[in-house]
């Protein structure tokens, strides 16, 4: 099962036959002392050049694990990928030799992490850390690679980049550190950029600046962007498509605007309704009752039924498939049409 995608014409893709990135029927499990935790249970999606796909979900829904599986930076063991394919321009990354995979990590697919302070090495200057990409992947010498680092720091709008290239991560503010992360990630002009909650650790005004920067870079470079977030507000402005994850599976995927206007899954609906609205001032905020299921003890059939307001017997016995309910809209709910019609 592959969800279709909307691709702007003439995306400038080199491999015409293959989408840029395809994830197909991916499973990831963690072998722990308490048993096997199934973090990802059959996730599929496609990403094209210039496209922004938002993966939305709460903590533990498997969105970060999906990103790390694509990057190939899951700790294995305890993680294991029993099934699935991740194809970059048609080549399966999961069966690739270590060395070829490393050559993709950075130059082709790269990633921005949530907490830039802990994600940057504290004992090396930021310029050194950016320049390392050029030294190790392009074989550049020290001076040239540092020049490149300065150029990138200017590109992500760090003031006085020439002087600050020798500064250490702790000498920057949170927003500037995230800019450095971005500079490092886009250093080798990758075709896929994965941003794992890039703005979560930042305050609101800085969040907007960072998102604007990411969009600007994407517009110029034309890479595909996977934006992982739990923040519906961030998604609406930036993403083309959105995939909502729950308990390690995609429960709804759609173009962004239709999804906001009319969700086709009770979980998405709950998420949208729990956004505070100005006109609802004074009223109690809506919340989805209960907690996401433990990855060790998944409920049978539909994973959302214990929290779902419209759950009936069939939800407890039959696991719904992700099916197309409208052109370009997929929902994993027995009553998707009814939810959509509300």
């Amino acid at each position: 099962m592959t969800s279709p995608h909307t691709t702007p014409a003439g995306a400038g893709s080199v491999a015409v036959d293959h989408p840029l990135l395809e994830v197909e029927d991916l499973f990831v499990e963690f072998h722990t002392r308490d048993g096997v935790a199934s973090a990802i249970n059959g996730v599929s999606f496609t990403l094209e050049e210039r496209e922004t796909l938002a993966i939305l979900g709460e903590s533990g829904s498997g969105k970060s694990v999906t990103a790390q599986a694509i990057m190939g930076i899951l700790d294995m063991p305890p993680a294991k990928i029993p099934r699935g394919q991740i194809r970059y321009r048609g080549n399966d990354l999961l069966t690739m030799a270590d060395k070829s995979r490393r050559a993709i990590r950075g130059p082709e697919i790269s990633m921005i992490f949530q907490d830039a302070l802990s994600s940057l090495n504290p004992v090396f200057p930021v310029g050194w850390q950016i320049a390392e990409m050029f030294r190790k992947h392009r074989g550049m010498n020290r001076r040239d690679s540092l020049d490149e680092a300065v150029r990138l720091m200017e590109r992500v709008q760090i003031p006085a980049a020439k002087e600050r290239v020798r500064s250490y991560p702790h000498q920057f503010s949170g927003g500037m550190r995230q800019r450095i992360m971005i500079a490092m990630a886009i250093a080798l002009n990758p075709r896929v950029l994965i941003a794992d909650e890039p703005t979560t650790a930042l305050d609101v005004t800085v969040q907007a600046q960072i998102m604007a920067l990411l969009q600007e870079i994407q517009d110029e470079e034309g890479m595909g962007l996977i934006l992982i977030t739990h923040d519906l507000g961030v998604v609406a402005d930036v993403a083309d498509r959105i995939a909502v994850m729950y308990a390690g599976r995609i429960v709804e995927s759609s173009d962004v605007l239709p999804l906001y206007a009319k969700p086709a899954h009770p979980y998405t609906k709950g998420l949208i309704e729990s956004i505070p609205q100005l006109e609802d001032k004074g009223k109690e905020l809506f919340a989805i009752k209960g907690l996401p299921p433990s990855l060790l003890r998944m409920p049978p059939a539909c994973k959302f039924h214990p929290r779902c307001t419209r759950a009936v017997e069939v939800c407890r016995t039959d696991d719904p498939e992700l099916r197309e309910v409208e052109p370009g809209r997929f929902s994993r709910c027995h009553f998707a049409e009814e939810v959509l019609g509300e």
């Binding site: 930076i73 090495n121 090396f124």
Partner: peptide, 26 residues
């Protein structure tokens, strides 16, 4: 297990450099 070692892996560096430079220096 730190985040910056995860970053070093994400940069596509070989294991020897991740351990020998990024981890050991700390």
């Amino acid at each position: 297990r730190t985040d910056y070692i995860r970053t070093a892996h994400a940069k596509g560096l070989p294991q020897g450099r991740v351990v020998g430079v990024h981890a050991l220096r700390n």
